[in-house]
């Protein structure tokens, strides 16, 4: 029961944050809403007994990514006058909803009609750091290494792309 309440509250924050993000006219509010959604998502992970994912989400998605985005706004000083005006925002959003609705509806229909499952019983250690770590290094070593490679590439790429000068 209490879990249900927590779920609905979190879902409210999640949907609200996400909607706020795409409707806000000022970038900073989008970022704030997005942060809200990300924190709520972390809560969702906690609710799913994924305690490590919960921490990773907080650490990476909220702590790192939001901070980084805000830092970019602040340090490049993208102030009001550089932000696009978007005079037909309402109309555009409506168009977006019209286009996205069938896709979402299709998935939801598929889920509702062809998917019936319940949560499996899980051990206490499910989702903890030790357990996830064991799984990660037992059967997911290659993806793990590849992801590290990807991160390295992204690191170098980010440095190269954002470097000043030299490029004409």
């Amino acid at each position: 029961m209490s879990e249900s309440i927590i779920f609905y509250v979190l879902a409210l924050f999640l949907i609200g944050g996400a909607s706020g993000m795409i409707t806000a006219r000022r970038t900073i509010f989008s970022a704030a809403s997005f942060m809200l959604a990300m924190i709520a998502l972390a809560g969702m992970f906690a609710l799913l007994n994924q305690s490590f994912l919960f921490l990773a989400q907080l650490l990476v998605a909220v702590g790192a990514i939001i901070t980084l985005s805000m830092l970019v706004i602040v340090s490049v000083n993208i102030s009001e006058r550089y932000i696009p005006k978007e005079p037909h925002l309402g109309r555009d959003l409506l168009l977006g909803v019209v286009i996205a609705a069938p896709i979402v509806a299709l998935i939801i229909t598929a889920l509702r009609t062809h998917f019936a499952a319940s949560f499996a019983p899980i051990p206490d250690t499910f989702g903890t750091l030790a357990s996830i770590g064991a799984t990660l290094f037992a059967s997911w070593v290659l993806p793990f290494e590849l992801i590290s490679l990807l991160l390295l590439a992204a690191l170098i790429g980010a440095v190269v792309i954002s470097r000043k000068g030299e490029r004409s």
């Binding site: 704030a32 305690s51 921490l55 650490l59 903890t128 750091l129």
Partner: peptide, 20 residues
């Protein structure tokens, strides 16, 4: 039992308030 991670995760959020 994940004390230090919590500290790192939440501690880093403080900066967001400063940025906003």
């Amino acid at each position: 039992d994940y004390g230090i991670l919590w500290y790192l995760a939440i501690g880093a959020l403080g900066i967001i308030g400063v940025l906003f």
